[in-house]
Amino acid sequence: ARDAEVLARCGVIASMQPHFDAEWGGEGDLYDARLGKARAATLNDFAMLAKTGVALSFSSDAPVTPIDPWSTIRAAVHHHQPTNAISARGAFAAATRGGWRAGGINDGLTGTLTPGAPASYAVWEVDDLVVAGSHEKVQRWSTDPRSRVPALPDVSPGADLPRCVRTVHRGQVLYDRDAG
């Protein structure tokens, strides 16, 4: 945590791959077997980094882990060490705006869907949208419709994750599932 505070003061952006924890972080998995339980429990501590002010950027590290942003978000939210997990909203920000910021673009628009922002986005087919707080106390107010917290796809284990329908970069369609 002390090192994380230094990283935060220096403005470091942590480029992390939550799939690593999902693939190798559980009891008896690779980290546990190679590094031991005590060290494995400290790896990929997204919550600690976020709490100390380190900006997060999530990616896949393909081809080591799949390019699948919603399962990346799921992995960050459902870390094998619950205290290391972050909220779906925080994981979504790290998987979207975080990547732009890590690439040196921090103009307040890029990576958001707001008027005036570059038109780079993905369209997803989603089964269920939910509003979920990161903690039981937050859950009580954030799920109240009056809080106006936008819903996100359900990333709980076992839920069907969104499917990509279209990607657009700077107004140009790169992928269209229905185009044939």
Score class of each variant (00 low, 15 high):
residue 53 G to D: 08
residue 168 V to C: 11
residue 101 R to E: 15
residue 93 A to E: 13
residue 75 A to L: 07
residue 11 G to R: 10
residue 88 A to V: 13
residue 36 G to I: 05
residue 25 G to A: 08
residue 110 T to E: 06
residue 76 A to F: 04
residue 168 V to Q: 02
residue 13 I to D: 04
residue 44 N to D: 12
residue 39 R to L: 13
residue 101 R to F: 02
residue 70 W to T: 01
residue 108 G to P: 03
residue 157 P to S: 10
residue 144 D to H: 15
residue 155 V to E: 02
residue 80 H to V: 02
residue 51 K to H: 10
residue 95 A to Y: 04
residue 128 D to M: 06
residue 142 S to P: 00
residue 11 G to W: 07
residue 77 V to E: 04
residue 164 C to Y: 01
residue 11 G to E: 05
residue 35 L to S: 03
residue 105 I to R: 13
residue 29 D to K: 14
residue 5 E to C: 01
residue 65 T to L: 00
residue 4 A to P: 00
residue 154 D to W: 05
residue 119 A to W: 02
residue 160 D to Q: 14
residue 168 V to I: 12
residue 177 R to N: 03
residue 135 H to D: 15
residue 93 A to Y: 07
residue 164 C to S: 05
residue 76 A to V: 02
residue 110 T to K: 10
residue 89 R to K: 08
residue 14 A to P: 02
residue 93 A to W: 07
residue 170 R to L: 14
residue 106 N to L: 10
residue 54 V to I: 11
residue 115 P to A: 10
residue 137 K to L: 14
residue 123 V to F: 01
residue 61 D to K: 08
residue 28 G to F: 03
residue 87 S to G: 09
residue 85 A to L: 02
residue 35 L to T: 04
residue 106 N to S: 15
residue 114 T to S: 14
residue 135 H to L: 11
residue 138 V to H: 12
residue 81 Q to P: 00
residue 139 Q to K: 11
residue 89 R to W: 10
residue 145 P to F: 09
residue 117 A to F: 10
residue 68 D to W: 08
residue 43 L to D: 04
residue 156 S to R: 15
residue 67 I to G: 00
residue 58 F to M: 06
residue 150 P to S: 08
residue 27 E to T: 09
residue 164 C to M: 14
residue 116 G to E: 12
residue 152 L to Q: 05
residue 155 V to W: 06
residue 60 S to M: 08
residue 22 A to Y: 08
residue 178 D to Y: 11
residue 17 Q to L: 13
residue 127 D to E: 15
residue 155 V to Q: 03
residue 64 V to P: 00
residue 179 A to P: 01
residue 25 G to F: 02
residue 66 P to R: 13
residue 176 D to C: 05
residue 37 K to M: 00
residue 46 F to Q: 05
residue 52 T to H: 12
residue 78 H to Q: 07
residue 19 H to D: 07
residue 30 L to Y: 14
residue 78 H to W: 14
residue 71 S to N: 13
residue 30 L to P: 00
residue 78 H to A: 05
residue 96 T to G: 04
residue 118 P to Q: 05
residue 30 L to M: 14
residue 179 A to H: 12
residue 79 H to F: 07
residue 151 A to V: 06
residue 83 T to K: 14
residue 108 G to F: 07
residue 154 D to G: 08
residue 19 H to F: 13
residue 92 F to L: 15
residue 144 D to C: 07
residue 178 D to W: 10
residue 44 N to G: 04
residue 18 P to F: 08
residue 170 R to P: 00
residue 53 G to A: 07
residue 75 A to Y: 03
residue 161 L to Q: 07
residue 60 S to R: 09
residue 99 G to V: 07
residue 92 F to G: 02
residue 171 G to I: 10
residue 159 A to M: 05
residue 18 P to L: 06
residue 108 G to M: 09
residue 44 N to I: 03
residue 156 S to I: 04
